[in-house]
């Protein structure tokens, strides 16, 4: 099954068997290992990517549904070495510990910041409730998102 999609602004063509997930395409076919596999059932948000403006769990998203789609992953956030405000805030606020959940949180929070004019702490927490982090206890992640959300 041949698919063509745009990932982080770059065109990509892959040939994968039916039943392949978007996560497998990203990690195994395109070598974009920033997006992580954790629960494999859409429970934890570690594999969150944006497909045509919508955040979704790549581990349960059929690759064929992403044919001709625009996909944004964690690797597509920074412009070269220039981090986004949110990435910088994550670095400074202590939002990163082991970092395995970080790509999913960054993609989800980037989407939250793009779709809401102003975010309260409650809104940030609700918006990130589908992403699991086992290290941080969330406070410093919420801090980083709020720092950017309030600065906007």
């Amino acid at each position: 099954m041949e698919l063509s999609l745009t990932v982080n602004g770059q065109p990509a063509v892959v040939d994968v068997p039916p039943g392949t997930t978007l996560l497998e395409v990203l990690r195994d076919e395109l070598g974009l290992t920033g997006t992580k596999e954790v629960c494999d059932e859409g429970e934890c948000g570690a594999c969150t990517v944006i497909v045509d403006g919508r955040p979704l769990d790549a581990c349960i998203y059929a690759a064929h549904a992403a044919d001709r789609a625009e996909v944004l992953t964690v690797e597509g956030l920074a412009a070269g070495d220039e981090l986004t405000d949110l990435q910088r805030a994550f670095v400074e606020a202590g939002s990163v510990q082991c970092g395995f959940c970080t790509p999913g949180f960054l993609v989800m929070a980037t989407h939250l910041l793009e779709t809401a004019a102003e975010l309260s702490e409650e809104q940030v927490r609700r918006g990130l409730a589908g992403n699991l982090c086992r290290c941080t206890g969330y406070a410093q992640i919420v801090d980083a998102v709020l720092a950017v959300g309030r600065g906007a």
Binding site: T35, L77, A78, V96, G99, T102
Partner: peptide, 13 residues
């Protein structure tokens, strides 16, 4: 800030 944070926020780690 921790030394490995940039690699972790860019997905390069």
């Amino acid at each position: 800030p921790r030394g490995d944070a940039v690699a972790k926020v860019t997905g390069r780690a």
